[in-house]
């Protein structure tokens, strides 16, 4: 099984947002692999490997990233986690939007013919949550968004996907190939079933795996192809323009109340909330 995992590098979300000239100031920012994309790499690994002994029989994981030259560092991180090779389409973040990204991915998919695209449900900087669905729509493929669990069928021709929806969990079956976007619970200890990893095996459930030292060394030798938008039939013509960014007004300072009766009194008389 060949799995394509699009990943994005994003500013570390634990940094405080700063504004300069009406836009987010990223001077000196530290960068990470988008958390949900890291989960997607983890998911792809769990789909292919025997989690109990770490062996992988067959299959390939190709990471694709569309972003600035510096993003090569974050792409290497995903190779160190265990992805096999990478494609880096070098461009400025300001030159692309969801539709441009989808166009590039379509072109790569036409060439690579993966069995599955697995990606994060959204990037934690823009929070748009669009690319997976758009890509599936453009490809004419089925989609399973916000995947919390995945179960690969015995014949490897379909997957049963548990999706957290309003009011419960929806189970949807999608064929191969299709586009799957993952939510945070996909990294639970038993969230991915591939028929290879023993039922008794528990993943840590703490998130995506950290690259091992061996993985980091191996990643240095793994192939990374770099190209430009034009190489993939796309151009820097975003249809979405960010006019400005502002910080929301801070909440007014609250008060500490002494005890429960005081709290109830204030909620009733002052906040008129009871």
């Amino acid at each position: 099984m060949k799995i394509l995992v699009p990943v994005k590098r994003v500013p570390d979300p634990t940094q405080k947002a700063k504004i300069k000239d009406g836009h987010i100031d990223l001077t000196g920012a530290s960068w990470i692999v988008n958390t949900f994309d890291e989960y997607a790499v983890e998911t792809a690994l769990r789909l292919l490997e025997n989690g109990a002994d770490g062996t992988r029989a067959a299959g390939e994981i190709i990471v694709v990233s569309i972003g600035p030259e510096d993003a090569a560092k974050e792409i290497r991180t995903t190779l160190a986690m265990g992805a096999d090779r990478a494609i880096h389409v070098v461009t400025k973040d300001s030159e692309i939007d969801a539709l441009v990204v989808v166009k590039v991915l379509q072109s790569i998919i036409a060439a690579e013919k993966p069995d599955l695209v697995v990606m994060g449900k959204q990037a934690v900087d823009g929070d748009a949550n669009q690319v997976g669905q758009m890509l599936a729509g453009k490809l004419g493929w089925a989609q399973a968004t916000f995947a919390a669990t995945l179960e690969l069928a015995g014949d490897k021709k379909s997957l049963l996907v548990g999706r957290e929806v309003d009011g419960g969990v929806e189970y949807k079956r999608v064929p191969v190939p299709s586009v799957i976007t993952v939510d945070l619970r996909i990294v639970g200890s038993k969230s991915v079933k591939n028929g290879i990893t023993p039922e008794s095996h528990n993943y840590s459930g703490e998130g995506a795996r950290l690259p091992s030292l061996k993985g980091i060394m191996a990643a240095k030798k793994k192939p990374m192809v770099t190209g430009k938008l034009g190489d993939y039939g796309a151009e820097a013509a975003p249809v979405i323009k960010e006019l400005s960014v502002t910080l929301p007004p801070p909440r007014a300072a609250g008060q500490i109340v002494a005890d429960v009766p005081t709290l109830v009194k204030k909620l009733a008389d002052e906040a008129k909330a009871l």
Binding site: K16, A17, I24, D125, A128, N129, Q130, I240, V245
Partner: peptide, 28 residues
């Protein structure tokens, strides 16, 4: 083109939406 999860519309083609986990508001 799509604007996700908008908080308001400021012109017929212009929308305000939270980004960075709601820590900033982007006008697109």
């Amino acid at each position: 083109g799509m604007a996700s999860d908008i908080a308001s519309m400021t012109a017929k083609d212009t929308f305000v939406r939270p980004i960075l986990s709601g820590n900033a508001l982007s006008t697109v």
